[in-house]
Amino acid sequence: MKTKIISTLLGLICVPVILPLTLLVLGSMTGAEEWRGILAADVIRPILLPTYPTLAPLVEILMDTPEFFHMFWNSCRIAFPAVAGQILVGAPAAWALSRMRFAGRGAVESLYITLMLLPFQVTMVSGYLMLDRLALIDTHWAVILPGIFSPFAVFLMTRGFAGISEELIEAARIDGAGAVRIFISVGLPLGLPGVLSAAVLGFLEHWSMIEQPMTFLKSPGLWPISLFTPIFTAESAGPGFAAALLIAAPPLLLFLYGQHDLERGIAAAGLKE
């Protein structure tokens, strides 16, 4: 009985969370004709249910809006290398931080946590000047390179690796495995939730990035999809929603696909202090 009440309450809490997503889908299925009716009336109808559901807005974005594709592709060109780099560079560092006992290890970990907290704007000017000196401003590398060295990814993976029991590693060592071998054959498979959740969250971060591309990319031709802002009129509302839905699709799919590991990875992040 008591659990039933709690379940119902929890179900209710999910409504405001899921509602916006539903609106996103519904909005992208509402045609221009109907949007005109909705927006012309002083007040939008309480519930946005298209009387004549249509895929026209989606088709319009997919077929007739080349800049949408261009920006979508730009996002891919930023997010994928950045995430790959985060893992390649960050995983060994996280492993070292969680496993090896060296002088100043605690200090290094604190440093990562503190740097993780800094908002982008704090280092914006100096970052800009340095990237400028490297002649990287107005190239995708200006966004990718700093992204690769995200302290957050290292933090998340460190916590993931920290949960691996020391006995297992000891056993591998006795069997004659070297440091690299232990990392690849024991650390990576067992710390996978941490690594994967760092990858998923890293992808999300780069996919929705706004400040960095706005500051470091001058030519609109290089802009990622996160800077795509449709105007909200009757003609463009449908396609605007369709675009919003398509922008959300890759991270959403990734989330649902990697959900199990993501949940375990985030949970691991909370476990050790």
């Binding site: 899921i18 007040v43 959300a248």
Partner: peptide, 30 residues
């Protein structure tokens, strides 16, 4: 299901949510 449901908002990029937020909170919004 609650865990999954509540995690979803994090996956939606700000650029996408803005359309919905406008629809909900605009002068003639929902």
């Amino acid at each position: 299901i609650v865990k999954t449901g509540l995690l979803i908002p994090m996956a939606i990029p700000a650029a996408s949510m803005i359309a919905v937020w406008r629809l909900l909170f605009a002068d003639s919004g929902i």
